[in-house]
Design a protein around this nucleic acid. Sequence first.
DNA 1: AAAATTAATCGTAATATTGCGATATAATTA
DNA 2: TAATTATATCGCAATATTACGATTAATTTT
Lengths: 110, 110
Amino acid sequence: MGATKAEEFSVKDNRVAKYARALAHPARVAILKLLINKQSCICGDIVDELPLSQSTVSQHLKELKVAGLIKGDIEGVKVCYCIDETEWNIAKNYISDLFSAYKAVAGKCC
Amino acid sequence: MGATKAEEFSVKDNRVAKYARALAHPARVAILKLLINKQSCICGDIVDELPLSQSTVSQHLKELKVAGLIKGDIEGVKVCYCIDETEWNIAKNYISDLFSAYKAVAGKCC
DNA sequence: AAAATTAATCGTAATATTGCGATATAATTA
DNA sequence: TAATTATATCGCAATATTACGATTAATTTT
């Protein structure tokens, strides 16, 4: 018993879930927005912007990296994070495909 | 200590996270796709389509309902679930705003 | 080389999610 | 009214997530 029966679902559904999961915490949404607006790329600056400890932010960054949405570039002692353009677009397509699959129809059940 | 420091983040970021969270499990993605394609609206039919128990499916349906993405209509003993058009569009906009906020630029750090 | 800086990782606690069987609830049929 | 059918909810177990302080690792500065 317990968590995760993910293998039983399609690869596509799991992909959507994976990308959605990356966005499923406000801290990660905030981090992505910082990177998008280039307000800060350096890990330390991101930490300063968020109401979370360094270790927690580092963990969120790791999750975004594992999901593929961002990548990190070591610059001396510091690390510069950026949106991973390729995977970002893939995620965008996967999720927007789901959302645009629904078209309001006349003959609906409810 | 522990989970959730959500209040510290903006309402908008929390909204995105809320909708993303709803999509963050392949079972829920699969349920939404069933509803979109109108292959099944009745709870029991959804249960038959998924490799999960009735109680687990019921729980996923509840989460989608709490997030606002679907609504349930009681039809006698059965319950017909449907996409909630209004909230679906809101969610679509919130998430696609985030994705389209990123434009690939020349002068990037990495 | 020692000290300082930056970020990742480890260990741990608190909490949330996932999943199921059993039970409860409500409507329908016999 | 009793039996049946369809869903929701409860209680529990397994696992995952969130968060933090402490430690480690790597680089830079002194």
